[in-house]
Amino acid sequence: MTPLPAGQVVAGSPATGLVELTDTIGVWDHTPGTSTDVEADEVFVVLSGSATVSFEEPALPAIELRPGSIVRLTAGMRTVWTVRETLRKVYIAG
């Protein structure tokens, strides 16, 4: 796991980890804490953990994430990830 850059951290000391399975498929982890991100095009399925992802741009309703959640993000979305229990997702990027 790698600590996130200070400019992305909103609360806590979150860290992330990534295992790329192919050029477009991977597994991503985020430890408890709150961070911001600018998204790429992807679809993901939550494997474990608990979190909320909220959207700064575009303004969309927040999504509660738990095992089995399926989400599509589009490039350029500005998000805030509030992770309560280490989140693990498998993603397909486009």
Rank of each mutant, 00 (worst) to 15 (best):
I25A: 08
G26H: 01
V27W: 03
W28H: 02
W28Q: 07
W28G: 00
W28A: 06
D29W: 15
D29L: 14
D29E: 15
D29Q: 14
H30P: 09
H30C: 14
P32V: 01
G33E: 04
G33T: 05
S35L: 11
S35K: 04
S35I: 10
T36V: 12
D37Y: 03
D37S: 15
D37N: 15
D37P: 03
V38G: 14
V38A: 15
E39R: 03
E39K: 02
E39H: 02
E39F: 08
A40F: 10
A40R: 11
A40E: 11
D41C: 10
V43F: 07
V43W: 07
F44K: 01
V45E: 00
V45Q: 05
V45D: 02
V45Y: 00
V45H: 04
V46H: 01
V46R: 06
L47R: 05
L47C: 05
L47D: 00
S48I: 06
S48E: 03
G49Q: 04
S50E: 01
A51W: 00
A51K: 01
T52H: 03
V53F: 07
V53G: 05
S54L: 05
S54W: 00
F55Y: 06
E56N: 10
E56F: 10
E57C: 10
P58F: 08
P58H: 11
P58R: 08
P58C: 07
A59H: 15
L60M: 13
L60H: 10
P61N: 13
P61V: 11
A62G: 14
I63G: 05
I63P: 03
I63A: 14
E64H: 09
L65S: 01
L65G: 00
R66D: 12
P67H: 09
P67F: 09
P67L: 09
P67I: 10
G68E: 04
G68W: 05
G68Q: 11
G68T: 09
S69W: 04
V71P: 12
R72Y: 11
R72H: 13
R72N: 12
L73V: 08
L73K: 04
T74S: 12
T74K: 11
G76V: 14
M77A: 08
M77V: 07
R78V: 12
T79A: 13
V80Q: 07
W81F: 13
W81Y: 09
W81P: 02
T82K: 08
T82C: 06
R84H: 10
R84Q: 09
E85T: 07
E85C: 05
E85F: 00
L87R: 04
K89M: 08
K89N: 12
V90Y: 04
V90D: 02
Y91G: 08
Y91Q: 14
